[in-house]
Nucleic acid binder design. Sequence first.
RNA 1: GGGCCGGUAGCUCAGCUGGUAGAGCAGGGGACUUUUAAUCCCAAGGUCACAGGUUCGAUCCCUGUCCGGCCCA
Length: 419
Amino acid sequence: MARRDMGKLVFLDLVDRSGRIQLLCPVERTGEIDVHLGDVVGVAGSPAKSRRGEPSLMVDSLELLSRIRTPLPDTFHGLTDVEQRYRKRYLDLLTNEKTREDTIVRSRMVAAIRRTLDEWGFVEVETPVLQPRYGGAFAEPFVTHYNALDEDAYLRIATELYLKRLIVGGLEKVYELGKDFRNEGVSFKHNPEFTMLEWYEAYADYRDTMERIEQLVAHAAREVLGTTKASFRGHEIDLAPPWRRMKFVDALEEHGLWTRDAEELRRRLRERDVDVSHDPTWAKLIDHAHSHFVEPNLIQPTILYDYPIELSPFARTTDDDPTLVERFEYFAGGMELGNAFTEINDAEEQASRFAFQEGERAAGDVEAEGGDPDYVEALSYGMPPTGGIGLGIDRLAMLLTGNESIRDVILFPALRRKD
RNA sequence: GGGCCGGUAGCUCAGCUGGUAGAGCAGGGGACUUUUAAUCCCAAGGUCACAGGUUCGAUCCCUGUCCGGCCCA
């Protein structure tokens, strides 16, 4: 609320989520106007126009609902200090229109995604956040403790293994949209606590999932932006299907980085000045090559498919090459937005994939999949062929709002305590 | 974890090779019946992130710590 006090006539700007309107307060009618910038007020009056022609409300009475006690930041510049914007998001929201808009865009995006999945016949479910084992992704977990059970537990890094148990249970199409937690670095595209959507669909494979994700993303964009074109990092990104599709192997081949030989790959990466000292296995090396040379260049939406089996402990092998799996990731704006595959639905095959990951772990990859005998047992009761996907809600929100930092689409991002 | 940059009034920012700090807005008091970042007058507002060091003297130079940003792993 801005105040232009003219003595007998006071001008106030009243702002709420719907916008701004000017109030005209003739003091002889309303009495003394004792309001400050940032006060919360209720007013009654009738429509009027100012002498300059601005639509206004001629006020009969004004009631103070909440008195501001700490002065608002500079309302012309807004709050620009990024640290303050994250720590005191309420001030950021009060003073920066763009932050309010982005918050609404994200909310509508999530609503559009839910609506679409619901229309497609998916069932929204909730699975445990606190898990006795963690799995479904390569990541380090947060550890906590159950007093009642006298057991350590992990905050989930993915919802995957529980959702697939529900496919075993015959729910056929399920999704969960919620927080996952990964105990690792913070960056422009990583927040340890982030929002993920996963869905699983019985009697579908990764090609069906490709169709769905293209439709879902394009539809969400149309709902919130009115178009499939988003601007991000100076690019116009058109999310309309069909997206470019390319084999993972070919994408690495383009950069001369496809080889199955770990030492040869290590040599080629070193040649390109990449520090490979933290990459003990071929799987880590190829992942490094991909994230360093391929991913940043995938600006327009692109589906990379048919990944090496070593990177994918839950994906079914392709029919014509047992070293590749039916997996795809999709990218836009140089970022990975989601990861999908045709799920392994055979208990024995799943058990041997876990065994391979044990080997990777022994070789020094701390993020390798830990294995889950209870999940293998679930599969032993028979899971239909299933296509599944996980996609990052925060990153999609970045794309649709044009924010280059994930912290600008998370209201309260992770920050170190300051006291 | 490494490199670079930053932290000065509630907010946005100045502050010269080192001489104990300034503006605008906000907040306080006052004037004004058509203002739009209203205008005008008055007064107030600071542990210059923190701790050491160099110096007659440090917001400024040096070292360390804390917090943040960007880039790299």
